[in-house]
């Protein structure tokens, strides 16, 4: 099958999945905090990454733009982890769809930049994301008061615990990438 046809099928699949997550399944994903923060948000990011893997394969992003894109991705992750943003996303489905588009764009552009950028920036970015996810988890675990009015304290703690695990897993992946890349350089 020609590469162009594979691209079209892949992008169509991404589009259909994004639509399913964003529309018919949105209520289910918004019902609990772990589903919203640990399934819906990463799913959109992942779909963006899948779309970006092939679509932007031959596009080169120049040095200042890749830094700008990484800043945009970091800020997007911070923004959608804020309790106020989570509440707004759950209460107003239209606002939640802004998050979906944002995450799709972050994944789509992010994978292209990560593949092209220099080793040091790649590792620094991955380390920052790991720490951010870990700290978000610690915050949710530590606070004994409800931070998001759309959920309950048990869901908040559960999300926090799983974010800590996700942070550790991501940090391990970063270390693995670091040593593998270092090995190649040597």
């Amino acid at each position: 099958m020609p590469a162009k046809a594979i691209n079209i099928i892949l992008n169509l699949a991404v589009f259909v999945l994004a639509w399913v997550i964003s529309f018919p399944m949105n209520e289910w994903f918004s019902a609990t905090m772990p589903r919203h923060q640990l399934l819906q948000l990463p799913a959109m990011l992942l779909l963006g990454i899948i779309a970006g893997l092939r679509s932007l394969k031959h596009i080169t992003i120049s040095f200042p733009w890749d830094i700008a894109i990484l800043i945009f991705i970091m800020a997007s992750l911070v923004f959608w982890m804020l309790p106020r943003s989570i509440d707004a996303a759950v209460i107003y489905p239209a606002f939640n769809r802004v998050m979906h588009l944002n995450m799709l764009a972050a994944g789509f552009l992010g994978i292209t930049v990560i593949r092209q950028t220099i080793f040091e920036i790649k590792i620094a970015f991955m380390a920052m994301v790991s720490v951010m996810v870990f700290v978000a988890g610690i915050t949710l675990i530590t606070f004994n008061i409800l931070l998001c009015s759309s959920f309950n304290i048990d869901q908040q703690k559960e999300t926090g615990f799983r974010l800590i695990i996700a942070g550790i897993v991501f940090a391990t992946g970063t270390l693995f990438t670091f040593f593998r890349s270092l090995g190649k350089k040597i």
Binding site: P64, W65, A68, F79
Partner: peptide, 20 residues
């Protein structure tokens, strides 16, 4: 080379600043 990341950072910072 400096301007583009600085502009991106400023926009992101402002959005989060206003939002919070």
């Amino acid at each position: 080379r400096v301007l583009i990341p600085v502009v991106a950072l400023t926009i992101c910072f402002t959005v989060i600043w206003k939002w919070t």
